Amino acid sequence: MTDRTPARPTFDDEGDDALGGFVAGPDDAGKRLDAVLAAHLEGLSRNRLQALIKAGEVSVNERTVTEPKHKVHEGDTLALTLPEPEDPEPKGENIPLDIVYEDDALIVIDKPAGLVVHPGAGNWTGTLVNALIHHCGDSLSGIGGVRRPGIVHRLDKDTSGLLVVAKTDVAHQGLSEQFADHGRTGPLERSYQALVWGAPSGLRGTIDANLARSEANRQKINVVRSGGRHAVTHWQVQERFGPADQPPLAALVECMLETGRTHQIRVHMAHIGLPLIGDHVYGAGFKTKANPLPEPLRSTVTTFPRQALHAGLLAFEHPVTGETMTFESPVPEDFKALLEALRKF
């Protein structure tokens, strides 16, 4: 009888190595993805494999799967990519924080643009996590993982606004459950202010388009017709800019998240032809819109250093007291200056 069980690959968990793929055998059928990988890969613990799956480093039949409990079928081709090794545990750094609210369970920060939330490639120091470790001391130890202590959601480096961080395991679990539920059954609410090129024809709408990491550029996210992760953004026009007798040059749009995916608002708005002003990743093709503008608007737009996106509203249920907490943040000065320049056009 021929042995149909694939050979057991061995990994040392160093470097950006990729397993070209192995085919699940009959003994793997019906089992969880993390269990199958653990059975076939030496040198990687079950917990490590679960983390890699959730991070999007595992594919089944060339489709990214992020659920460790995903059921494997005989004949499935499984592939795993091992990321670069993580840096040592982050250290506290005396970085100023704009603290909106704090108690023994959590802390709400108004994050400035330019501040990275947690350590990663190219940003091992100077992050919000380093600042939080310095501010909170040992209370963050072990909550949510070494690299992301207390973090339950994040904002892109160049997105400003409100972010809540857990200070205890109980708070971390309670907040994580709310963000995983996306406000479907609770008071969680996230609203962003975005300045976009052009303007939609209607006053409000919904973008329902799955997102996946680009195979060509792993730093970018694409809208995909099949597979990927479910993503929904609701939008509402607050203001249009430009001469009354011409199509709108730009618009101020409120974006409400029903899901929270990487770069979701930026990708979704670009997908419907309304990229964010200043977004050099997803709106680079629209930079020529600024060329015919009069001064000083042209200079204000072309020198705006980031995507015009601000997390202005955050509401959630306090994980200990059960109270609904609502916080609002006005747009920062750079966003405000751009907004005022557009209003004068």
Rank of each mutant, 00 (worst) to 15 (best):
2 T>S: 09
4 R>N: 14
8 R>M: 11
9 P>I: 13
10 T>C: 06
10 T>M: 08
13 D>N: 14
16 D>F: 11
23 V>Y: 00
25 G>P: 01
25 G>V: 00
37 L>D: 01
43 G>D: 09
43 G>E: 05
49 L>T: 08
50 Q>C: 07
52 L>T: 04
58 V>A: 02
70 H>S: 12
73 H>M: 12
76 D>E: 08
85 P>E: 10
89 E>V: 13
93 E>L: 04
94 N>Q: 14
94 N>H: 09
95 I>L: 12
99 I>F: 01
100 V>L: 00
104 D>W: 01
105 A>P: 02
106 L>P: 06
112 P>H: 07
114 G>K: 03
117 V>K: 00
119 P>C: 08
121 A>T: 15
123 N>A: 13
126 G>C: 07
128 L>I: 11
133 I>V: 10
136 C>P: 00
137 G>W: 01
139 S>I: 10
141 S>N: 05
145 G>I: 09
145 G>S: 07
147 R>H: 07
148 R>M: 13
149 P>T: 05
155 L>K: 04
159 T>D: 04
160 S>M: 06
163 L>T: 12
166 A>S: 08
173 Q>T: 15
177 E>T: 03
183 G>Q: 05
185 T>H: 15
186 G>T: 13
191 S>W: 05
191 S>L: 11
191 S>C: 10
191 S>H: 13
194 A>Y: 05
195 L>K: 04
197 W>F: 13
201 S>C: 04
201 S>G: 15
203 L>F: 05
206 T>M: 11
207 I>E: 02
209 A>F: 07
211 L>Y: 09
213 R>A: 10
214 S>M: 04
214 S>H: 04
216 A>L: 10
217 N>S: 08
219 Q>T: 13
221 I>A: 08
226 S>H: 12
226 S>A: 13
228 G>E: 07
230 H>G: 00
235 W>S: 03
236 Q>V: 06
236 Q>E: 14
238 Q>I: 13
244 A>S: 15
245 D>L: 14
245 D>N: 15
249 L>Q: 08
249 L>E: 11
249 L>H: 06
253 V>F: 02
259 T>C: 13
262 T>P: 14
263 H>A: 09
266 R>H: 13
268 H>G: 08
271 H>R: 08
276 L>D: 06
277 I>N: 04
278 G>I: 06
280 H>C: 06
286 F>A: 14
286 F>R: 14
287 K>F: 11
291 N>I: 14
298 R>D: 04
299 S>W: 06
303 T>I: 04
307 Q>R: 01
307 Q>H: 15
308 A>R: 10
317 E>V: 11
328 E>Y: 06
330 P>V: 10
331 V>P: 09
331 V>R: 05
334 D>I: 05
334 D>R: 03
337 A>F: 02
338 L>M: 09
344 K>L: 10
